[in-house]
Simulated scan of single mutants.
Amino acid sequence: MARVVVALGGNALLRRGELVSASTQRDNIRCAAQALAQLMADGHQLVVTHGNGPQVGLLALMGEQAGKGAFPLDVLGAETEGMIGYVLQQELDNAYAGPAQFATLLTQVEVDPRDAAFSVPSKPVGPIYTEGDARRLADQRGWAIAPDGNAWRRVVASPRPVRILEIEVIRLLMAQAVTVICAGGGGIPVAQRSDGTYVGVEAVIDKDYASGLLAAELRADAFLMLTDVSAVFTDWGTPAQRALGDVSPQALAALDFAAGSMDPKVEAACDFVNRTGGLAGIGALADASAILTGKAGTRVSADKS
């Protein structure tokens, strides 16, 4: 039995262009749960993480529209961990035929308040806008905005994760054969004060970096990042694009990938492999089992050229 950390990309919750709604989210999570249930049926022990960008953005807008002001991002992160984790836990329980226990854990992830990311917001959250609407909202609400494909979105600080505060709790649950859903949206960002206490910070941690740290801390055998593309491609979006199959961290480090989309996945994969010697996989949600058996996706390992 392999211990596998699975990071579900945004497509597991909301596909580009879809409205953020409870029914759409559940339909997509139901499909994700079926793929995860197959991994469990194959005999693997899972720890599951997920994205939360659209949901955080929606909750922030709802707070503002209610005239009460938006909650800070750490609180919104906690809300979405519970909201998404509940549906994912329920659909996993429904999809898996064998005996199993599932638990969703609110997960605090420590960041360094001196991280340079706080002065350069880069993490997209919330819905997509036209450039005109995005600039208007930025002026009204003091947002930082940036292009996201052909659209525009709000961007916030995305510091690197330093430590997962609940790591021992996760280990205890895993020792009891519990499938743990944790570190949703990269975890709840917190910083340690000079007196040793913790406080939430206004940021969103990249899910792939946090999931990679989690996988390394758990000494996972494999770390899967499941998204809406079938593999990592060189020359993406050009006639020369080519899918990568088995590849080493050194080979990937020599290539350039899109910042904010594939680049964090590649970095997280390489870091995990270099730290643990395990296997990292990037590919489509439907190919989860095939990635582990070497039949699909991009597979990063130390012994591949």
Rank of each mutant, 00 (worst) to 15 (best):
G260N: 05
S230K: 15
G260I: 13
F257Q: 03
S211L: 02
A216V: 07
L226G: 11
G245D: 13
L252S: 10
V199G: 02
D221Q: 13
F257R: 01
D221S: 10
L226E: 09
M225R: 09
T238F: 12
D228M: 11
D256T: 15
V232E: 05
A220S: 10
W236Y: 15
Q241F: 05
F272T: 06
N274A: 13
A269S: 15
A254C: 01
L224V: 07
L214D: 04
V232P: 00
E267C: 06
V247L: 01
D263N: 13
S211N: 07
T227S: 02
A254D: 10
T227C: 00
A231F: 01
R242K: 15
A203H: 08
A240I: 00
S261V: 08
A210G: 06
S211D: 02
V229P: 09
L252A: 11
V199R: 14
K265H: 04
D208Q: 11
D221A: 10
N274G: 00
L213F: 04
F233T: 10
P239E: 14
V201N: 11
L218D: 06
D208V: 00
M225D: 08
L218H: 08
A251M: 05
A203K: 10
T238A: 14
V199D: 05
T234I: 13
Q241P: 02
T238P: 08
A251Y: 01
P264C: 07
V201F: 08
L218F: 10
P249Q: 12
D235V: 13
V204S: 09
L244D: 01
A203R: 09
R219A: 15
A268F: 03
T234W: 00
V199W: 02
L213C: 04
D246W: 00
V232M: 08
N274K: 15
Q250H: 13
L255F: 01
L213I: 12
G260V: 14
R219N: 14
S211C: 03
L252C: 06
L218T: 11
A269D: 07
D271H: 08
D263M: 11
V273I: 11
A258Q: 15
Q241A: 15
A259G: 05
V232T: 04
A251I: 09
L226R: 11
V229Q: 14
G237N: 13
V199A: 14
N274M: 07
L224N: 02
V199H: 07
G245K: 12
Y209M: 08
V201C: 11
D206M: 11
A220M: 05
R219W: 00
A216Y: 02
V201H: 12
A253T: 04
A253K: 13
E202G: 01
